[in-house]
Design a protein around this nucleic acid. Structure first.
Length: 202
DNA sequence: CCCTGATTCGC
DNA sequence: GCGAATCAGG
C-alpha cells in the first residue's frame, strides 16, 4: 500500500479527530500504526493541537503557566515558590496580563471521537433480564475498570454504567468477548435470545 | 499485558 | 519517503 492522496486525506482527518494511530492504521488497512505515526511526523502534523473541523469549540487554554509575575529576575532565597527554572525565556517580557486568581481550567481540551464499532448499548430496562444475569452484572460492575470513553478499545467492554449526566458515569472496561463489544456478563444481558425475553406481562 | 505516540535508521 | 524496531510512557 502506498500513501495515495486519498489515504493521506483520511489519515489527516482521523488524526485531526483525535483518533489513535492504530485506529487509523486499521481503518486504512495495509499499514501498521508505526507507518501511520511515521507518516504523521513526515507530514509535520504530529502536533494534534490544530483543530480542523468546526465542531464545538473548547476554549483552547494555552496555560502560559506563570504564576509569579514579578520578582522573576530577582529570586534571592526568599521565594519558596517554583523550583523549576522555567526553562529559558529568551522571549521578551509580556507580563501585561494578570491571569485572574483562578486559572480557569476548563476541562475537555480534547474532542475524542467514539471508537469504531457498533454504536453503543441500549441500556436495558432492568425488567426483562433474568435474575441470574442481572446478579452477575451487578457483581461485575463492582469490578468495572471504570474507563472513560477514550480509554475504550476493541477489547474492552463498552457497557455504560451510571448516569451520563453526572460524574458517576463510566464504561465497564473489563475484557470483552472476542468479537463482542461487551464482557461476558454484559453480553449476557445485551444479547438475549428472543425466546427468553418473551412476554412477561407486568 | 493492554495500549499510546516518538524516534531512529536501513532500506 | 517509508516503516519496523525500538524507546518511553500510561
Amino acid at each position: 500500500m502506498s500513501w495515495t492522496d486519498e489515504r493521506v486525506e483520511t489519515l489527516k482527518r482521523m488524526w485531526g479527530e483525535g483518533q489513535s494511530a492504530s485506529a487509523i492504521a486499521k481503518e486504512l488497512g495495509g499499514v501498521t500504526r508505526n507507518a501511520v505515526i511515521g507518516k504523521v511526523h513526515r507530514l509535520g502534523l504530529s502536533n494534534r493541537v490544530e483543530e480542523v473541523e468546526p465542531a464545538i469549540e473548547a476554549p483552547a487554554v494555552a496555560a502560559p503557566e506563570r504564576p509569579v509575575p514579578a520578582a522573576a529576575a530577582s529570586r534571592p532565597a526568599a521565594a519558596p515558590v517554583e523550583p523549576e527554572p522555567v526553562g529559558e525565556a529568551p522571549l521578551e517580557a509580556e507580563p501585561v496580563a494578570e491571569a485572574p486568581a483562578r486559572p480557569a481550567f476548563n476541562p475537555v481540551p480534547r474532542r475524542p471521537i467514539v471508537p469504531a464499532g457498533q454504536p453503543l448499548p441500549p441500556q436495558p430496562s432492568a425488567n426483562e433480564i433474568s435474575p441470574e444475569a442481572l446478579a452477575s452484572v451487578r457483581e461485575v460492575e463492582k469490578r468495572a475498570r471504570k474507563l472513560t470513553l477514550m480509554e475504550l478499545t476493541e477489547r474492552t467492554c463498552k457497557w455504560p454504567i451510571g448516569d451520563p449526566a453526572t460524574d458517576k458515569f463510566w464504561f465497564c472496561g473489563l475484557p470483552s468477548k472476542p468479537g463482542k463489544p461487551y464482557c461476558e456478563a454484559h453480553v449476557g444481558v445485551a444479547f438475549q435470545p428472543m425466546s427468553s425475553r418473551r412476554d412477561r406481562r407486568r
